[in-house]
Amino acid sequence: MKNFFATICCAFLLLSCKGQTAGGVEKIAPAQFSQKLKSENAPQLLDVRTPGEYAGEHIDNAINVNWNGPNFETEVAKLDKSKPVFVYCKIGGRSSQAAAKLSQMGFSKVYDLEGGILKWTAEGYAPKTDRIIGMCSQEYNELLNTDKLVLVDFYAKWCAPCKKMAPYLEKMTDEMKDKVTIVRLDADEHKTLVEEMKIAELPALFLYKDKKIIWQHKGFISEAELKQQLQ
């Protein structure tokens, strides 16, 4: 009986420890993420995207360790486990996985940026720049110069919902061309528009009539549901 009781106690303690580890990860919005970064002396800020993504844009003073790279654990093990670690990726998927791994490795506190650098930029925390990346607003407005409806789809090659929607959007582009002009814009190639329009989630759909937005949607939508909006 004593052995049984001891076994139960040990199991309870193990579960408790696991709960505490999971509790070491906190997903926070850009405003809070920014505040906590400023409150730390030399914060440990980790960008877990690819080197190419990091080179294109990153939060100041972030170090780059690719979550999908072969040396993730080896590289992050060099960080101070007693200090908070701030983690982000593009929209939050990879950073959530990386944050869980850091917690398992014994890091005391991990802050995961909600919505990733896409939301960070949309909410105005990225440095302002005069450099235009991709289409400018004037060129974008020229796309709307038509009597037909215009559906603009902002997508990304790495975005799973975007990939799922691509086949029927391409089909609809041809099937509905007499009624609707469908324009698909890669968000990574048109960063200026994404920032100006404060796009914080992909895919992002905007439906225009007479140059005015009459409907918009973020995230996945089925072909049937989308067609209802275009009737």
Rank of each mutant, 00 (worst) to 15 (best):
30 P>D: 10
96 S>K: 14
65 V>N: 01
69 G>V: 02
46 L>Y: 07
49 R>G: 11
74 T>S: 02
72 F>A: 06
49 R>D: 12
60 D>F: 04
138 Q>F: 00
120 W>I: 10
89 C>W: 08
84 P>L: 06
96 S>W: 07
110 V>C: 01
60 D>L: 05
83 K>Q: 14
81 K>I: 11
85 V>R: 03
149 L>T: 13
51 P>W: 07
75 E>I: 07
152 V>S: 00
32 Q>P: 06
120 W>K: 06
30 P>K: 08
58 H>W: 05
115 G>D: 04
123 E>C: 01
128 K>M: 07
43 P>A: 09
100 A>F: 07
115 G>C: 04
116 G>M: 02
84 P>V: 10
103 S>C: 06
33 F>D: 10
94 R>H: 08
151 L>V: 14
38 K>N: 14
66 N>C: 10
126 A>N: 06
35 Q>H: 15
137 S>C: 00
94 R>G: 06
87 V>A: 02
58 H>M: 04
87 V>Q: 02
148 K>I: 12
26 E>Q: 15
67 W>Q: 05
63 I>V: 15
105 M>N: 04
80 D>Y: 04
81 K>S: 12
45 L>H: 06
44 Q>R: 07
143 L>W: 05
103 S>A: 15
65 V>H: 01
105 M>E: 04
134 G>T: 13
141 N>P: 01
